[in-house]
Every structure is written in structure tokens, then in C-alpha cells.
């Protein structure tokens, strides 16, 4: 009986942890650096995810995101910004710049080719 209680409690705790960790925990946020007062730039490392994966930018100013893909794993071989009609291959061990201008305030999700790895661009 005791074993059953222990298994149940541990299981429920695991479920709570999994959901908190993957869905609700705080993520690393990065503010894009303003360059030359007219464009903003962020370096992003791609390895099993995007680091940083929440990027804050100013609206109306061109953004350049430099994606450095630090792996060969299939999953991250494409970056997709659906809201900006961008779908670009990220060659392994190379930096690929993605450029666009978020004209409106809002949150723009970016993902890998299959939508598994995700990050968020917040324009303010």
C-alpha cells in the first residue's frame, strides 16, 4: 500500500514539475542591442533550442537576429518566422542573419521547421 502511495505522490509531483518547467517557468529574456541608433541586433545560439529564446525589440526599427547553429541535429535546420514570411535554412556551425522590421507591437513566435523548438520576439 505504501509503495502505491509513494508512486502516486512522486508521479503527481513529476507531472506538476514537467508542466511548470516546460510551460510556465521564466525564460531567459534578452533585450536587443541598438546599433547606430537605427537597427537592433541579437546573437542567438541554436542548440536544442534558442538561447536566448525571448527577445525584446523596439517596434518600427529593423531587427537583425544572428542565428548561430551549434549542432547538426535535424530538428533545428530551419528557422521560421511565420508572421514575416521567413523560412530559412540554418547551416550547421554557421551564423545566419535574419532581418525584418516588426512594425506593430506584439509577440511574434518563431520556431524550427516543425514547430517543436520555439522562441518569442516581443516588439514594444
Amino acid at each position: 500500500m505504501l509503495v502505491k502511495i509513494v508512486v502516486t505522490v512522486v508521479g503527481v509531483i513529476l507531472i506538476i514539475f514537467v508542466n511548470w518547467y516546460f510551460l510556465f517557468s521564466r525564460r531567459k529574456t534578452a533585450q536587443a542591442a541598438l546599433r547606430e541608433s537605427w537597427f537592433q541586433e541579437v546573437m542567438i545560439r541554436v542548440k536544442g533550442g534558442y538561447d536566448p529564446d525571448v527577445i525584446v525589440v523596439k517596434k518600427g526599427i529593423p531587427v537583425r537576429l544572428n542565428f548561430y547553429r551549434d549542432e547538426t541535429a535535424d530538428c533545428s535546420d530551419t528557422i521560421v518566422f511565420g508572421d514575416f514570411n521567413i523560412r530559412k535554412p540554418l547551416p550547421a556551425y554557421k551564423t545566419t542573419p535574419i532581418e525584418f522590421t516588426p512594425e506593430k507591437e506584439g509577440e511574434y513566435v518563431f520556431t524550427c521547421g516543425m514547430g517543436m523548438l520555439r522562441g518569442k520576439l516581443i516588439a514594444r
Partner: peptide, 19 residues
């Protein structure tokens, strides 16, 4: 090994994928 590597990489980023 690639599944472990992928899973760990994703875990560090608080992501979970098929790996």
C-alpha cells in the same frame, strides 16, 4: 546518443521535443 543529446539540449532551454 543523438536522442539524449537532443533531449538534453532542449531540456536546458526548457523545451521538450520528440527527442
Amino acid at each position: 546518443w543523438q536522442f539524449y543529446r537532443g533531449a538534453w539540449g532542449a531540456f536546458k532551454h526548457r523545451n521538450a521535443d520528440m527527442n
